[in-house]
């Protein structure tokens, strides 16, 4: 028995070592560095809270916090709604549904940088296919509605919308998880609703969504955690944080630039601390909301399912 226990610990060991050396210690080191001035050349100097004071007046950080929050507010709900809609549309066997499932996974399979370069071309205001499509039926460089087409890479609002738009196509993983969750729902729940003569909308509201709620909650949480980082490669490749000064500058880009372009590691660590803090707040808010829903029985309904 003791031999078994030793072997099990050995099996866990590589992962534990990785977790400590590559994640937990570096995270602790980042927190410590946030209170210093470090450039990896001279010895670092303890600054106290000076980096954090500077954060509050840094225009790049101020813009990035606002941009990151607006990205979170638009991207996370839209991604979830689209993924759930597609999963419910495609969960039944129908002509072409297998192909459609595979197609939903496609954009997420493109490596991030290639995906960024692809959108750099798609969103090109003059030659890009997106605006060519929007100009169909319009005249004199206007859309069919008579408005000017979006200036994706040069107008601040349009550029931010472009970054969100890019995120809406990479929902493959979320889609697969919702799809599997939907397929695992007990058919009895639907038979009962049918006996009661419920309409499709009622079935969705009273049966499907409550039963999927626990999975959806986890997905929202995960998307929120990822959204602070997800905007990094697109902004680096497609907009480089612009149009100037900071229209699509997100916190991850500020961190990267401070650390690896301006070599201000201590200050960059303070930005990292800010990101961690924001993530923690977002998680806390969602956790409280979840608990409130659970006490009202919305999430609980799913948790009481047999076999769960």
């Amino acid at each position: 028995m003791n031999r078994d226990r030793r072997q099990l610990v050995l099996m866990l060991m590589p992962y534990l070592v990785g977790l400590v050396v590559l994640v937990l210690l570096p995270a602790a080191a980042t927190m410590a560095m946030a209170f210093t001035e470090t450039d990896l050349i001279a010895t670092s100097r303890f600054l106290g809270a000076a980096n954090f004071v500077e954060l509050t007046t840094d225009p790049a950080v101020q813009a990035a916090v606002g941009n990151s929050l607006s990205y979170l507010m638009f991207s996370v709900p839209l991604r979830l709604v689209i993924a759930v809609g597609l999963a419910l549309l495609l969960h039944r066997r129908a002509r072409g549904s297998g192909t459609a499932r595979a197609a939903v996974l496609l954009p997420g399979a493109v490596p991030e940088l290639a995906y960024g370069l692809m959108w750099l071309w798609l969103l090109n205001p003059i030659q890009g296919p997106v605006n060519q499509f929007l100009l169909l039926g319009g005249e004199g460089g206007r859309t069919a509605l008579g408005t000017l087409p979006p200036q994706w890479l040069t107008d601040p609002e349009d550029a931010r919308a472009g970054i969100v738009l890019m995120s809406l196509f990479t929902i493959g993983e979320t889609f697969v998880i919702v799809l599997t969750a939907r397929l695992a729902l007990p058919p009895e729940a639907y038979e009962l609703a049918e006996l009661e003569g419920a309409r499709a909308g009622q079935v969705l509201r009273r049966v499907t969504l409550p039963l999927l709620a626990p999975v959806l909650a986890v997905l929202v949480l995960r998307d929120t955690l990822m959204s602070l980082q997800a905007s990094f490669v697109p902004t680096l490749v497609v907009t480089n944080g612009g149009p100037p000064p900071y229209a699509t500058t997100y916190l991850s880009l500020v961190l990267y630039q401070d650390a690896f372009e301006y070599l201000r590691y201590g200050y960059a660590a303070a930005v990292a601390a800010l990101m961690l803090g924001l993530t923690a707040v977002a998680v806390l808010i969602q956790w409280r909301l979840l608990r409130r829903w659970a006490s009202h029985g919305i999430v609980g309904a799913g948790a009481q399912r047999p076999g769960n």
């Binding site: 994640v23 980042t30 980082q229 990267y256 990292a272 601390a273």
Partner: peptide, 18 residues
């Protein structure tokens, strides 16, 4: 779960030093 919360960019610096 905690490790999943930490932003990847936040780990770059100490890993780079390492």
């Amino acid at each position: 779960v905690l490790a999943m919360m930490v932003p990847a960019t936040a780990l770059l610096l100490p890993r780079f030093v390492l």
